Simulated assay, not measured.
Amino acid sequence: MAFGSRMDGCGNFMKYGLFIINLIIFIGAVVIVGLTIWTIVDKSFANELLGTNLYSGAIYVLLITGILISLVSCFGCFGAIKEVRCMLMTYFIVIFIVFVTMLLGGILGYVFREKVGITMRNAMVSSIPSYGRVKSVTNAWDETQHRLQCCGIYSYRDWQNNIPDSCCKEPVEGKRQRCQLMFEQQNSFTLYQRGCLNVTVDFVKDHAAVIGGAGIGVACLMIVGMIFSIALFKLIE
């Protein structure tokens, strides 16, 4: 019995429902790709201070899966409209593999989120003696302190007698004053008072939550897409 004459209303619902779901999945995947690229390019200045590769690993996993999902969702839309069984089955298998991969990336991100405070503190403590001698560490500290408006691990006192200029607030006239002099004078108006540990931990957790939330939303749609693809596969003869 042909698809058009068997459960026509239900079949059309599955057909166009799968098309719409895949369209939404495509948009969600593009959002995930955009968020991960934004994180990699603009928000990776503190990587040297994280003390682990779990965060960057999870971001790259989500980037790759986001690209794959955007391609597979187009494949699913075409398979639904053309009512091709082999395409629907291929779509289901690929989307399931991508779903598992995304789940792995989410688990990595969650594990890192729980350990970020401890690993970052250890990395910051061990990196302070390398400031000024190792370029990557120096740049990471300067960029983190300047962009997050913080200084040291818990306060500017962590730098002792070698406080960086990046701990200085920008004065009104636009010329940065020497932080060492400000440190000696204990000037709270020109030195950032907050320590970088808690500020950076909150920063990383907030961005991980945004990307994780987008990933969870797309993953839920992927489950619905798999259900619809199997149902449509069984209706097509």
Rank of each mutant, 00 (worst) to 15 (best):
M102L: 10
M102K: 01
M102D: 11
L103E: 00
L103N: 11
L104E: 01
G105K: 08
G106Q: 09
I107V: 15
I107H: 10
I107E: 14
I107C: 11
L108C: 13
L108V: 10
G109P: 03
V111G: 05
R113T: 15
R113L: 08
E114N: 14
E114L: 14
K115E: 14
V116M: 10
V116H: 03
G117H: 10
G117F: 11
G117M: 13
I118Y: 07
T119S: 14
T119H: 15
M120C: 03
M120Y: 09
M120I: 13
R121T: 15
R121A: 11
N122P: 04
A123W: 15
A123T: 13
M124Y: 03
M124P: 07
S126I: 07
S127V: 11
I128H: 02
I128L: 12
I128M: 12
P129Y: 01
P129E: 13
Y131R: 11
Y131A: 14
G132W: 13
R133K: 14
R133C: 02
V134C: 14
V134E: 15
V134M: 14
S136F: 10
S136R: 12
V137D: 10
V137C: 14
T138P: 12
T138L: 12
N139V: 15
N139W: 11
A140N: 07
W141S: 13
W141C: 11
D142N: 14
E143G: 07
E143S: 13
E143K: 04
T144R: 00
T144M: 10
T144V: 11
R147D: 06
L148T: 05
Q149N: 12
G152S: 05
G152H: 08
Y154R: 11
R157Y: 14
D158R: 01
D158W: 02
W159T: 05
Q160N: 12
N161E: 04
N162T: 07
I163H: 03
P164E: 04
P164N: 06
D165K: 02
D165S: 13
D165R: 03
S166A: 10
S166Q: 01
C167K: 03
C168N: 04
K169G: 06
K169F: 07
K169R: 12
K169Y: 08
P171F: 01
V172N: 10
E173I: 08
E173H: 07
K175M: 00
R176Y: 12
R176I: 01
Q177L: 00
R178A: 10
R178V: 02
L181V: 12
L181D: 09
L181C: 00
E184A: 08
E184L: 00
E184I: 09
Q186D: 06
Q186S: 02
Q186K: 01
Q186Y: 05
Q186M: 02
N187R: 01
S188K: 05
F189N: 11
F189T: 00
L191I: 07
L191H: 03
L191K: 00
Y192K: 05
Y192N: 03
Y192L: 00
Y192H: 08
Q193Y: 00
L197N: 06
N198D: 06
V199C: 05
